[in-house]
């Protein structure tokens, strides 16, 4: 498999399922290629490339997924999506002028909470990142971070006051990251928040946030707005990182122990040969 094949032959979000009505179509760009997503009057979704060739289609987690290549694997599974009692919320795409890989890496990072999401997801002086566990699970070819703990002044829309929050992170595909966090109204369960990223080019992307929550009280629009506000704070960082591509050369940027997830993610990308959106050697 060549480098570009890894990126080409994967699934990416191309539309929000329930926003595409019968007889409608829309055009999106995936890795510099224009795709037309259309839903026939029979409700069936087709994705067509500019040269007329049909592209693979999968529908799951509120999104339409496609590829400019031929994925040799099914779309990853999110088992929690099938659990009773969860509310599924899709937040819509946000355009980011940064590498899709930078966007995923930022989603895996907790150390920025007190500085970027001040008084919401973190607050000084609670800045310490305790040791946590990171592994590349070879059987499933995924990056996992577990036993992550961090103090949050307002952990979720439904949280009233500060608390230590538990997290887990899962990277099932290079442009997807899923986080599990303490669910305030239901101790013992995890809220699930995922970020699905569609690369438009190597340094431009659309990021779709999707949530599967145990929350019966909050209004849908408030949940979306909360998530959007958080993500817009991240975007102001992401669009000002230099270089815009994610450096895979370990000499380029200096990590510490708190960055263990990011180190594993970069190593995993390099090992897979996923270089779309990455910078291999320092320039």
């Amino acid at each position: 498999m060549t480098t570009s094949d890894v990126a080409r032959n994967d699934w990416y979000p191309v539309a929000i399922d329930n926003l595409l009505t019968n007889g409608q179509s829309e055009v999106v760009v995936l890795m510099q290629e224009e795709l037309t997503i259309s839903r026939g009057n029979d409700g069936v979704i087709k994705v067509t490339a500019q040269d007329g060739r049909p592209c693979p289609v999968a529908i799951n987690y509120g999104h339409v997924w496609s590829s400019i290549g031929q994925p040799d694997h099914a779309l990853f599974d999110i088992p929690e999506a099938h659990e009773d009692g969860r509310r599924m919320v899709d937040c819509g795409p946000v355009r980011v002028k940064a590498s899709p890989l930078r966007v995923v890496e930022n989603f895996l990072d907790i150390a920025h909470f007190p500085f970027v999401h001040t008084d919401i997801l973190g607050a000084e002086p609670h800045t310490e990142v305790e040791p946590y566990k990171v592994e590349i699970r070879d059987t499933v070819d995924e990056v996992w971070a577990t036993r992550v703990r961090f103090f949050q002044p307002q952990a979720a829309k439904s949280a009233e006051e500060g608390q230590m929050t538990d997290y887990m992170y899962r990277v099932p595909a290079p442009c997807t990251s899923i986080l599990y966090k303490t669910c305030p109204p239901r101790p013992g369960s995890w809220d699930v928040i995922a970020l699905f990223v569609r690369p438009i080019s190597e340094d431009l992307c659309d990021a779709y946030a999707w949530m599967a929550l145990y929350d019966e009280t909050s209004k849908q629009s408030d949940l979306v707005q909360f998530q959007q506000m958080i993500f817009l704070q991240d975007r102001s960082i992401l669009e000002n990182q230099i270089p815009r591509l994610l450096p895979l050369d370990p000499k380029m940027e200096v990590p510490t122990r708190a960055d263990t997830t990011s180190i594993a993610y970069r190593r995993w990308l390099k090992r897979k040969g996923m270089t779309y959106g990455a910078q291999l050697v320092a320039r």
Binding site: D109, A111, H112, P114, F115, V116, E124, T127, S236, I237, N240, Q241, I242, P243, P247, E253, V254, P255, T256, A258, S262
Partner: peptide
């Protein structure tokens, strides 16, 4: 910033130090 490349001009001054806006 040597850590994750954030532009330090978005940072803030604390005493005699410049603090990066991303992870402080």
């Amino acid at each position: 910033c040597p850590h994750r490349g954030m532009r330090l001009s978005f940072g803030f001054v604390r005493g005699e130090r410049l603090s990066c806006i991303y992870h402080g």
